[in-house]
Amino acid sequence: MSNDVLVYVEHLEGAVTDSTFELLALGRGLASVKGGELVAALVGSGVESLAGELGAADRILVVDDERLAIFDPQGNARVLTTLVRDREPAMVLVPYTSQGMDLAADVAVGADLPLVSFCRAVRADGELGATVQLYGGKVEADVVVDADRAVFAVLSGAASAEDGRSGGAGNVEQVAVDVGDLAIRAAGVTLPEAGDVDIATQEVLVAVGRGIESEDNIEEVQELADALGAAVAASRPIVDQGWLPKTRQVGKSGLKVKPKVYLALGISGAPEHVEGMRDAATIIAVNTDPQAPIFGVAHYGWVGDLFDLVPELVDRVEGE
């Protein structure tokens, strides 16, 4: 085995994602603790130009296959598994994102390594370990791995993307990997349609979560949003129920927003949601559950029923 730290480079539509830069920043520190190289695995078709953005890595392994022009859950996993088996890095960092969720367990099983999910911090001094967020962010745990190598699926926000952004490529190494016959073939990428309110440009967002209880209750919150000249946004469960369109979803699978004020009503604050709103200038959270993790990211919090509060707020805001 080596002391290297291998980072999977996530990219889509020709752009390297912030998650990747966060992993490079995290991996940089881990590689220096381990005394190994920080290695980036760049997989796709015609992607070598992206290596120029990965200067934080000592070495960039480029695997080019035209069948992987669009991320292929099976093909990309096979490539990463092969690289991990051949190079035997001590640590493999994969983002806990839509792409990473296709890769992490596959690589762990394929290379016979333990896997730690939901990582918020990763440690390499002494035993390999991590701090993870479980139960929708309500519980945090320090874990250790009973092995000298492991795969870590890392939540967004574990390190600063800025710290991982560096031009001037390290050693670029072309690697040939035979992905074999694929049982999965990409048929195309679909970009979102514009048209609805763009929640990413709003100064004030009134966001609702599971606590809104029913579709009919959204009207009441819309009234508050109207009084504030704000838009209504939502956490994933509300969109999955079809109560608000996908364009209003904040979080990992929705949009990242940075309004002046983010009023979170009945949102528990699972890590996937927090990822999309933690950079708001002022976060006000209202939840009946005093343990709700949203209070961990909020600047102001009130424990109580949103249905008691909203009419009071509408009255006062309209009176301003």
Binding site: L12, E13, I70, F71, D72, P73, T97, S98, I184, R185, A186, A187, G188, V189, T190, L191, P192, K246, T247, K252, S253, G254, L255, K256
Partner: peptide, 8 residues
Amino acid sequence: WAGITADY
């Protein structure tokens, strides 16, 4: 993410 999907 951000409303982007892919078909397979």
